[in-house]
Amino acid sequence: MDVHQLQQQIRDYAAYIGIDKIGFASAAPFVELKQRLIRHRELGYESGFEEKDLDKRTTPTLLLPGAQSIIAIAVAYPSKMNDSPKSTRGERRGLFCRASWGTDYHLVLKDMLTELEAFILTLVPDAKLKSMVDTGELSDRAVSERAGIGWSGKNTMIITEEFGSYVYLGEMITNIPFVPDTPMEDQCGDCRLCMDVCPTGALVQPGQLNAQRCIAFLTQTKNPVPLEFRDKIGNRIYGCDTCQTVCPKNRKKYNQHQEAFKPDGELVKPLLKPLLQLSNRQFKERFGHMSGSWRGKNPIQRNALIALAHFKDETALPDIHRILQEDARPMMRGTAAWATAKILDDSSIAILESCLQNEEEESVRLEIEAALAEFKEKEENMDG
C-alpha cells in the first residue's frame, strides 16, 4: 500500500475514534533534547517522576528495535465547567486542575491507541508498534512538537491552534516508514504572561521549568510542602493551571466535546472539610477514576489543610485539631499545626501546647513551635 494512502487511512480512523489531532514524525534520536535534559538534571530541575535513563527518553530505537516513525496524538480536554459549585463561608472548596477532570486520561488515551494499533495491524499485519501515554520513556511534548501537533510554549506546554494547550498527548513508535509532518513555528512571540504570573517563579526561562518549584509538582509530593510555597498553593488540591489560563492562545478554547473528560463539579471542586475524613477505601471509591488520585489520599488531604488555612476557615478548626492530636501521619500533624497558626484562633493555643508535650517527631515539634511563636507574635502586636 502507498504510504501516503496508509497515513490518510490512519488519520481518518483516528478522527473516527475520537482522536482530535494526529501527526507523524521521524524516530531519529532527539539529540538536542538530550543535551537539554542533561543540563536540566545538573540544575536540579527534575520532578523525579521522569524516566531516569536519558538514552531511553531520547532514542526511540532503544524502545522498539527497527523504529522508523512515531505517530503522535492529541486529545483535547475542557477548560470550562458548567454549573461550577461555589465556595462559601464554612463550606470551602478545593480545586483539581483541568487535567484531572473526568476519567483518567491515561486510560482514555491508552484505549484510543490500542484501538488505533489494532486498525493499523489490519492494514500492515507485520507492523511493530509500541504505544505510551505520559508515563512512557519518551517526552510526549518533544514527539508532538516534531510531529507538528503544536509548538512548545514558554510554559513548556504544547500549544495547538485548535485547542490551545488543553490537550493530552500520547504516541506510538512503529517500524513503518511514514512521511514526517512539518513542525509548527513558535507563535508565542514576545508574550511572557505565563512566566510573569507563575506563583512560585517555576518558569525560570522560556521553555524551562524548575519542577521543584512548580505547584503542580508540589501538590503531588508525599513530603511536607516547603514553607515558602504553602501560602502560594491557595485552594489547589491537585495541579495548577495558572500558566495555561493566562495564555492568550487559550482564550475561548473551551473544548467541551470529549464526553470522557466532562467534569463533575462536586468531585473536581470538592468540599474541603469532608476530604479530611476520608479513609483510603472511601477516597478510591470517590476519586479513583480521576488522574489526580494517582498518589493516593495523603497529598490531597495535606493540600486540603493548606487550602483551609488559605481561607482562614475557623469552622475547620475542630477537624484540624483532631488531625493535630490524633493523626498517625507526621506530615499531616505538622501541616495541621501550621494551618492552626494561619487561622489564628486563640482556642488553638492550649491544644498546640498539649500536643507539643506529647509529640515525639522532631519535624512536627518544629511546626508546633513555629505555630506557637505566631500566636505569641500576635499577642505582642495586640499589646503594642
Rank of each mutant, 00 (worst) to 15 (best):
L64I: 07
L64D: 11
L64P: 05
P65Y: 14
G66N: 11
G66V: 12
G66S: 12
A67K: 08
A67C: 15
A67E: 12
Q68Y: 09
Q68P: 01
S69E: 14
S69R: 10
I70C: 13
I70P: 05
I70Q: 13
I70Y: 11
I71C: 07
I71E: 10
I71N: 12
A72W: 07
A72N: 09
A72G: 13
I73W: 06
I73V: 15
I73D: 08
A74S: 11
A74W: 08
A74T: 09
A74Q: 09
A74I: 09
V75F: 05
V75I: 14
A76K: 07
A76L: 14
A76G: 15
A76H: 07
P78K: 03
P78L: 12
P78M: 05
P78E: 06
S79F: 02
S79K: 10
S79C: 03
K80L: 10
K80Y: 13
K80Q: 13
K80A: 13
M81N: 05
M81L: 15
M81T: 04
N82I: 13
N82K: 15
N82E: 14
N82C: 05
N82Y: 06
D83H: 11
D83Y: 11
S84C: 07
S84H: 03
S84F: 03
S84E: 15
S84W: 03
S84D: 09
S84G: 04
P85M: 14
P85A: 12
P85F: 09
P85G: 05
P85H: 14
P85V: 09
K86S: 11
K86P: 00
K86Y: 06
S87K: 13
S87Q: 10
T88I: 13
T88H: 01
R89T: 12
G90S: 06
G90N: 10
G90W: 13
E91F: 05
E91L: 14
E91A: 12
E91P: 00
R92S: 10
R92A: 01
R92I: 02
R92M: 05
R93D: 01
R93S: 06
R93T: 08
G94L: 01
L95V: 09
L95M: 08
L95Y: 01
F96N: 00
C97Y: 02
C97F: 05
C97W: 01
R98N: 10
R98E: 08
R98M: 14
R98I: 04
A99S: 14
S100D: 03
S100Q: 00
S100C: 07
S100K: 00
W101H: 07
W101V: 01
W101L: 02
W101E: 05
W101R: 06
G102C: 09
G102R: 02
T103N: 01
T103V: 11
T103K: 03
T103H: 05
D104A: 01
D104R: 00
D104P: 04
Y105N: 00
Y105G: 03
H106Q: 04
H106P: 00
H106F: 04
L107T: 10
